[in-house]
Protein backbone atom coordinates (compact mmCIF):
# COMPACT_ATOMS: atom_id res chain seq x y z
CA UNK A 1 0.00 0.00 0.00
CA UNK A 2 1.01 3.61 -0.60
CA UNK A 3 0.19 6.37 1.84
CA UNK A 4 -0.63 9.47 -0.19
CA UNK A 5 -0.78 13.01 1.10
CA UNK A 6 -3.06 15.27 -0.90
CA UNK A 7 -2.98 19.07 -0.53
CA UNK A 8 -6.45 20.60 -0.40
CA UNK A 9 -7.59 23.76 -2.17
CA UNK A 10 -10.86 25.69 -2.38
CA UNK A 11 -13.88 23.71 -1.22
CA UNK A 12 -11.63 20.79 -0.21
CA UNK A 13 -10.23 22.90 2.63
CA UNK A 14 -13.32 21.89 4.65
CA UNK A 15 -11.43 18.60 5.13
CA UNK A 16 -8.22 20.32 6.29
CA UNK A 17 -5.10 21.53 4.51
CA UNK A 18 -4.12 17.95 3.65
CA UNK A 19 -5.86 14.58 3.35
CA UNK A 20 -3.92 11.37 3.90
CA UNK A 21 -5.21 8.16 2.32
CA UNK A 22 -3.91 4.66 1.69
CA UNK A 23 -4.10 3.29 -1.84
CA UNK A 24 -2.80 0.10 -3.51
CA UNK A 25 0.64 0.38 -5.11
CA UNK A 26 0.58 1.78 -8.66
CA UNK A 27 -2.90 3.23 -8.29
CA UNK A 28 -4.23 5.39 -11.10
CA UNK A 29 -5.78 8.81 -10.62
CA UNK A 30 -9.21 7.17 -10.98
CA UNK A 31 -8.39 4.76 -8.15
CA UNK A 32 -7.13 7.60 -5.97
CA UNK A 33 -10.35 9.47 -6.71
CA UNK A 34 -12.37 6.44 -5.52
CA UNK A 35 -10.27 6.14 -2.36
CA UNK A 36 -10.78 9.83 -1.69
CA UNK A 37 -14.57 9.46 -1.90
CA UNK A 38 -14.43 6.55 0.54
CA UNK A 39 -12.32 8.70 2.89
CA UNK A 40 -14.38 11.92 2.91
CA UNK A 41 -17.81 10.39 2.37
CA UNK A 42 -20.11 9.48 -0.47
CA UNK A 43 -22.01 12.74 -0.08
CA UNK A 44 -18.92 14.53 -1.41
CA UNK A 45 -18.62 12.37 -4.55
CA UNK A 46 -19.87 15.15 -6.88
CA UNK A 47 -17.15 17.48 -5.57
CA UNK A 48 -14.49 14.80 -6.15
CA UNK A 49 -15.88 13.95 -9.59
CA UNK A 50 -15.64 17.61 -10.68
CA UNK A 51 -12.10 17.97 -9.31
CA UNK A 52 -8.73 17.09 -10.84
CA UNK A 53 -5.57 15.77 -9.25
CA UNK A 54 -2.31 17.53 -9.95
CA UNK A 55 1.34 17.47 -9.02
CA UNK A 56 3.28 20.71 -8.67
CA UNK A 57 3.79 21.06 -12.41
CA UNK A 58 0.71 19.69 -14.18
CA UNK A 59 -2.81 18.30 -13.98
CA UNK A 60 -2.73 14.51 -14.08
CA UNK A 61 -4.72 12.39 -16.52
CA UNK A 62 -7.13 9.75 -15.19
CA UNK A 63 -4.77 6.99 -16.30
CA UNK A 64 -1.67 8.47 -14.66
CA UNK A 65 -0.03 6.21 -12.08
CA UNK A 66 0.55 7.78 -8.68
CA UNK A 67 3.76 7.05 -6.80
CA UNK A 68 4.13 7.62 -3.09
CA UNK A 69 6.64 10.41 -3.75
CA UNK A 70 4.19 12.40 -5.89
CA UNK A 71 3.21 15.73 -4.34
CA UNK A 72 -0.51 15.57 -4.99
CA UNK A 73 -3.08 18.35 -4.92
CA UNK A 74 -6.83 18.16 -5.40
CA UNK A 75 -8.24 21.06 -7.44
CA UNK A 76 -12.00 21.71 -7.41
CA UNK A 77 -13.73 23.81 -10.11
CA UNK A 78 -11.98 27.17 -10.45
CA UNK A 79 -13.38 30.70 -10.12
CA UNK A 80 -10.54 33.19 -9.99
CA UNK A 81 -10.47 36.80 -11.04
Amino acid sequence: MNTLTIKCFGAFRQFGDIITIDTPNNSSVSQVREALVRHIGLEHKPLVEDAVLANDSEILTEAAIIESSTKLSILPPVCGG
Binding site: A51, V52, A54, P76, C79
Partner: peptide, 22 residues
Protein backbone atom coordinates in the same frame (compact mmCIF):
# COMPACT_ATOMS: atom_id res chain seq x y z
CA UNK B 1 -6.46 27.14 -10.31
CA UNK B 2 -7.77 29.97 -8.13
CA UNK B 3 -10.79 29.82 -5.84
CA UNK B 4 -12.81 32.30 -3.81
CA UNK B 5 -14.81 31.98 -0.63
CA UNK B 6 -17.47 34.61 -0.05
CA UNK B 7 -18.15 35.95 3.43
CA UNK B 8 -21.62 37.32 4.17
CA UNK B 9 -22.99 39.72 6.78
CA UNK B 10 -24.67 36.84 8.64
CA UNK B 11 -21.19 35.30 9.25
CA UNK B 12 -21.85 32.46 6.80
CA UNK B 13 -19.12 31.74 4.21
CA UNK B 14 -19.32 29.76 0.97
CA UNK B 15 -16.78 28.54 -1.59
CA UNK B 16 -18.17 29.64 -4.93
CA UNK B 17 -18.84 27.13 -7.72
CA UNK B 18 -16.73 27.40 -10.85
CA UNK B 19 -15.40 25.74 -13.98
CA UNK B 20 -14.22 22.15 -13.66
CA UNK B 21 -10.71 21.62 -14.98
CA UNK B 22 -11.73 18.10 -16.05
Amino acid sequence: PVWKKEHYVDSVSTWLPGHSLR
